[in-house]
Write a protein that binds this DNA or RNA. Structure first.
Lengths: 200, 200
DNA sequence: CATTTCAAATGACATTTGTCACCCCTTTCC
DNA sequence: GGAAAGGGGTGACAAATGTCATTTGAAATG
């Protein structure tokens, strides 16, 4: 019996997916979460065989959960299930050594088949991704990404500095670097560009 | 037997919804569409009792389909099923005299109940909408919205002025007004706030 | 051990934002 | 007809943002 945890913020999809996968004789959906934080907690507690993670969720994204699970060496196999074929997302998923990355416009049947394959030790990636992944490399360093992330929430340079234990000047330098790298003429444009490319 | 057509572009949700609603003894899912154009065609051909429409679909949005069905006086009852509680969307749906507007974070059970109620002649609206649309009125004027929209794409004050035939100073004044109205401390935060509230 | 490399910081500077007070036209409305 | 009201504008000023050159100290590479 393959034990599954589902993390997805749209309740209707989460419920539907849970019910349908539970119908398969060899699957058992043991937990559901509506955000990344809760997903992490449930996975740690229940140690399922598979977890399905949506990317864009409140509090903690599916990619962050995947990275965390990899860090702590969890045995649960991760499958990302998302609408977005953004190369940046894919890249980050690969870095977190996920076992699958599927798109929400496959059928449930495909999903079930992919889960079984992953349990056999294979990795499953949606074909569209391989195509798209002439990935423009994310040029931003980790630090730069953090800075831009906070800036995207409307924080000022000073506030960002306080949060990351940097001086306001250093934050400005990072921002300057970021603008050069993504060829933006100001913060706002940089945010727009990075959102679109999935670098944020 | 209640005949249902589902229009939703995410295949996995469309499939799941179709299967699950079909399990109810009094429902029969007679058609599915992955975009608005196809939905319109199917509805015209099959004349189902109910159609579930997602809003953001390729080619033709669910709102456009709803408006068209109202225009031609179709007998099929329309239920909008979407992620977005944006007052603007809701308003347009009301204009098209839809019979329901539900959010994707209700449960399938709620959805089934809503469909039965609509068949009895009731109208079903997600509670969040009523709250949002009365309480959180978009405080921005048309002009202000335009300015913020352009700013969100990374344009500078000068560029925005050029595009809207305003002086850079006036653009700054608008921006200042916007910041007061949405209680943001800078552009970026204002953009984040307005995006979240669906005012953009 | 010397040499690069790199994250972080500073300081100086030019520009861009954000705030404010006040002006100039039209409309609109007692 | 005169008072508001509202869209658009100006100029002045402070604060934040963006650019750059330069410094420091701690790895990493050789």
């Amino acid at each position: 019996m393959i034990q599954i945890v589902i993390a997805e913020d749209q309740r209707i999809l989460r419920g539907a997916l849970g019910t349908l996968l539970d119908f398969e004789e060899d699957f058992k959906v043991v937990g559901e979460a509506e955000n990344g934080e809760k997903a992490l907690e449930i996975i740690n507690r229940l140690q399922p065989d598979i977890c399905l993670l949506d990317i864009e969720m409140p509090i903690m994204s599916g990619l962050e959960v995947a990275a965390r699970l990899y860090e702590i060496g969890a045995s649960t196999k991760v499958i990302i299930l998302t609408t977005f074929a953004r190369p940046g997302y894919f890249e980050r998923a690969i870095k977190a050594k996920v076992h699958g990355y599927l798109l929400k416009d496959g059928s449930i049947h495909d999903l079930a088949a992919a889960i079984r394959n992953v349990m056999k030790g294979k990795r499953e990636f949606a074909a569209e991704l391989i195509m798209n992944s002439y990935h423009e490399d994310n040029p931003l360093s980790e630090r730069e990404r953090e800075v831009l992330q906070l800036a995207a929430n409307g924080k000022t340079g000073k506030e960002i500095g306080a949060e990351l234990y940097l001086s306001a000047g250093t934050v400005r330098n990072y921002m300057s670097e970021i603008l050069q790298k993504v060829e933006a003429k100001n913060k706002v444009e940089a945010i727009a560009i990075c959102r679109e490319k999935g670098w944020l």
